[in-house]
Amino acid sequence: MKLRRGETKVGYLTGDGGTVERGVVLGMVQGKTLAEGKEIVSGYEKVTETVWIDKRGEPQAISHDPSVVSISIKPGNAEERQRELLDELKAGLEAISKDDASLDDIRRALAAQIAYSEFMELVND
C-alpha cells in the first residue's frame, strides 16, 4: 500500500527519538539569552516532520527527513488474511451455487466478496 503525504511541520527530535513541537521549544527559549537559548536548542535536532496517511486519511507512518519521497507498507499478516478471505469467498460461492441457497447465503457471499475486494484494494493501493 502506497501512503500519501499528509501534514508537514517543523519539530525537534529529542535524544530518545521523541519529537517536541516547535511551539514548545520556542516557549523554552523565550526570555533566555542567546547563549542560553542556543544551549537549550543544542539538545534537540530540528527536523521537518511529515505524516504519511493511507487512503482513509489514517496516519500510518512519520518521516523526519525531506529526502523521503514515498513510503509503501504491507499490512501485517497480509498473506494469512488473504488466504482466510479467499477461503470465505470460496465457501460463499459454493453456497450460493446450490439450488437451495438462502438469502442469508447470498448475503454472506456478498459480504465475503466485499471484504476481499476491500482488502486487496488496500494491499494493492
Partner: peptide
C-alpha cells in the same frame, strides 16, 4: 466472484500464502 474465489485462490497454491 469465480475469478477471485476460484482463479485467484488456486493461484495461491505453492506460494507464501
Amino acid at each position: 466472484m469465480p475469478f477471485a474465489a476460484i482463479s485467484e485462490r488456486v493461484n495461491t497454491y505453492h506460494t507464501d500464502i
